[in-house]
């Protein structure tokens, strides 16, 4: 299981990256993250919503109420322009961390 600090830090970039593929809603976002990480990246389900609201207040994403195919109400989120910029920045930063770690790991085995 991944440490909770890392899970919290990765929430925003993951949400941005998922929404970059198209609009989505809270439940689907959580299921998608779970599936893509083989269940290793586990959010407390309810914690996603404050993150989404915070991102909406900051102007990174926007929301609209809609309906599912079964008629259930759903709140759909999609990316705004600032969100795309933030996603690129997150990607650069996480890539940097990853490349430093990978480089250090490589050196250990040389």
């Amino acid at each position: 299981m991944i440490r909770k600090e890392l899970v919290a830090a990765s929430a925003e970039p993951l949400v941005l990256a998922l929404l970059a593929q198209g609009e989505s809603y809270g439940y689907a976002i959580i299921q998608e993250v779970k599936a893509r990480s083989d269940g290793k990246l586990q959010w407390t389900d309810g914690m996603l919503y404050p993150v989404l609201h915070r991102m909406e207040h900051r102007g990174l994403i926007k929301s609209r109420w809609g309906e599912s195919e079964t008629g259930r109400k759903r709140k759909y989120y999609s990316l705004k322009k600032d969100g795309k910029t933030a996603m690129v920045k997150h990607h650069e930063q996480w890539s940097l961390v990853h490349s430093v770690l990978a480089g250090l790991k490589k050196e250990q085995y040389v």
Binding site: T44, D45, G46, M47, P50, H53, R54, H57
Partner: peptide, 20 residues
């Protein structure tokens, strides 16, 4: 259980409110 405790959720929503 998966949704989380009301107290923790309230704290997190407060943070979102603070930003605005």
């Amino acid at each position: 259980r998966r949704i989380g405790s009301p107290e923790i959720l309230k704290c997190e929503f407060k943070k979102a409110e603070r930003t605005s």
